[in-house]
Design a binder for these strands. Structure first.
Length: 550
RNA sequence: UGCCCCAUGGUGUAAUGGUAGCACACCGGUUUUUGGUACCGUCAGUCAAGGUUCGAGUCCUUGUGGGGCAACCA
């Protein structure tokens, strides 16, 4: 029995005490942006907890601010949650479905003398609110009669008053130590077209007046949110108590922070709008859609979220944990293939002119069931530029004058000569091969320390490969006062290799099945870019761990 | 000069008054037709001071440090 985090403990206690018979959670995004890895943590938590207890999860779109929200975001959110592998078995809900009910709640509050209409300007109300260290003061409209408030609120709904002319406030305590309890605004007038309710409403409830009540109406037992809502909890409970409805409970946990990236929707939106990235799904983005396009798997993200844990303390997770989760999954599942990213020619001087042959190679040494594939081979191959060095020491296992290496799943070869191009760069390496060193039936007795990947020239696929580095060069791009996070954008976050050489089996690849390019990393086909350029384009999702301390 | 939350190796997270453990990262080794994987090992931690207790990472007090709270945003 593994240990439980504090929310699991609360749930166990509630189940054991009989407070609840079933766990019912919800994931409540505002459809005003794309989901990111931080949301993935919240999703895994709420869906995971329900799964654990055979409970229910609702997907709820918190759409109380029509000016910032849109259907595009609703669709993207649905897609991302599904992709992570979760099903909202408690149904799909919208706060806007409850607008009428919420209006009635407000009326109920007015009728019990706990809400009033205020006609002051935003500035005046702000001034009366006080500060965290000094109490606020009462509005001159605070003691209107119930009848007056009822009439005015009906007028607000009926569109009698212009935008911003008045608001409905809860009557709590203007001297409360918690700013959120100082007569919070619960309804405002806003003539904005809502993507679902159209122009039915010109007044919209505020977050605090909608969230807890929706939780309650949906029968949510445990309403999980991030720490910044901690100070809202007394208000959340106040509405539920004063409305006398199902007692959903809000519990807060620490949000996810990742080093070398940013996690605020507002800032991610700026990256998109200012053209720093290709869009919300740019493979460098920490969005779910970006990670998906980058080649991350749902399994890896879920593993990551598990490892990150749940607690109340502020945290910054190493990006390497995310990379580890991906490698861990793909090492077990991704088929291997060979590709040369920076090709130079490798000529076997003693290989019979015009001859070709077929070699076999295992698809995944970690998984015998993955089978084998055939590789065309000849005397004309591509090899990686960085696998050859003119001057090498004893620690260099790859090709160099005097060195002998194994070509993966093929033959052992020994350096003979090399050719320089006009600019003095190595353009071709010539080697002799040992016919009796064939992989699987090696009788040569020759030992080679290094193994190189290669691709046969005649059958190679020409492809674009996109290599990514972190988007920000600073571990905390938004943590510097006086500096904008865009100041820390890494100018080398994307490297495009326009003409790479891939083994022919990769002709059948698709975006859903990541591949390990032997010795290089995990890669996945980029559907969008492939269509754009009319030939294969691949993304490097993550490199292999590089144990070489050269 | 307020209120609320938090504090365990570099990072994250366990230990529910009774042996401070796990993972990632780092470093080293073994195996290896991927300088990958796997396996083994090293390094490294309870913010401070008091108190309660046979016994405190855990409970209490005070301090220190970090975070949050004053949108007609969520």
């Amino acid at each position: 029995m593994s240990s439980q985090h504090f929310i699991q403990q609360i749930i166990s206690a509630d189940l054991n005490s009989g407070k609840h018979q079933q766990v019912h959670t919800r994931f409540p995004p505002e459809p005003n942006g794309y989901l990111h890895i931080g949301h993935a943590k919240a999703i895994c938590l709420s869906f995971g907890l329900a799964e654990e207890h055979q409970g229910l999860v609702n997907l709820r779109f918190d759409d109380t601010n029509p000016e910032k929200e849109s259907q595009e975001y609703v669709d993207a959110i649905r897609r991302d949650v599904s992709w992570l592998g979760y099903t909202w078995n408690g149904g799909e809900h919208y706060t806007s479905d409850q607008f009428e009910k919420l209006f009635q709640f407000a009326v109920q509050l007015i009728e019990s003398g706990k809400a009033y209409v205020d006609h002051q300007s935003a500035e005046d109300m702000g001034a009366q609110k006080g500060t965290p260290t000094s109490p606020g003061s009462n509005s001159p409209h605070r003691n209107r009669t119930i009848a007056e408030n009822l009439a005015l609120f009906q007028e607000m709904r009926a569109g009698v008053h212009p935008d911003g002319h008045c608001v409905l406030r809860a009557k709590i305590d203007m001297t409360h130590a918690n700013m959120h309890m100082r007569d919070p605004i619960i309804y405002r007038i806003k003539r904005a077209h809502h993507q679902r309710t159209g122009d039915d409403w010109c007044i919209y409830p505020m977050y605090d007046f909608a969230h807890g009540q929706c939780d309650s109406l949906e029968g949510i037992t445990h309403s999980l949110c991030t720490l910044e809502f901690e100070v809202h909890r007394p208000l959340y409970a106040w509405f539920i108590e004063n409305l006398d409805i199902f007692p959903s409970r809000q519990i807060e946990f620490a949000r996810l922070n990742l080093d070398h990236t940013i996690m605020s929707k507002r800032k991610l939106l700026r990256l998109v709008e200012e053209g720093h990235v290709d869009g919300w799904d740019d493979p460098r983005m920490p969005t779910i859609s970006g990670l998906r396009r980058r080649g991350f798997t749902p399994e890896s993200i879920r593993t990551f979220c598990e490892r990150v844990g749940i607690a109340k303390r502020e945290n910054v997770i190493d990006f390497s944990l995310l990379e580890w989760a991906l490698r861990d999954h793909l090492n077990r599942t991704a088929p291997r293939a060979m590709a040369v990213l920076d090709p130079i020619k490798l000529t076997l001087v003693n290989y019979p002119e015009g001859q070709t042959e077929s070699l076999t190679s295992e698809n995944n040494p970690e998984d015998p069931d993955a089978g084998v594939r055939t590789l065309p081979f000849s005397g004309q191959l591509w090899m990686e530029r960085e696998d050859f060095k003119l001057e090498a020491n004893k620690k260099w296992f790859r090709l160099a004058p005097g060195k002998t290496v194994r070509l993966k799943s093929a033959f052992i070869v020994r350096y003979v000569d090399h050719v320089l191009d006009d600019s003095g760069q190595v353009s071709e390496v010539k080697v002799e091969y040992f016919p009796d060193s064939r992989s699987g039936s090696d009788t040569s007795g020759i030992k080679a320390k290094g193994t190189l990947h290669w691709v046969n020239v005649d059958t190679a696929i020409d492809a674009e490969v996109r290599l990514y580095d972190r988007l920000f060069s600073d571990p905390a791009p938004d943590g510097h006062e006086g500096k904008d996070f865009t100041d820390f954008i890494n100018p080398n976050s994307l490297t495009i290799r326009p003409h790479c050489m891939l083994e022919p089996s990769l002709a059948n690849a698709d975006a859903e099945n990541p591949i390990q390019f032997t010795r290089l990393g995990y890669f996945s086909l980029d559907q969008k870019r492939t269509e754009e350029i009319g030939r294969p384009a691949w993304n490097r999702s993550v490199t292999l761990k590089d144990g070489w301390k050269g």
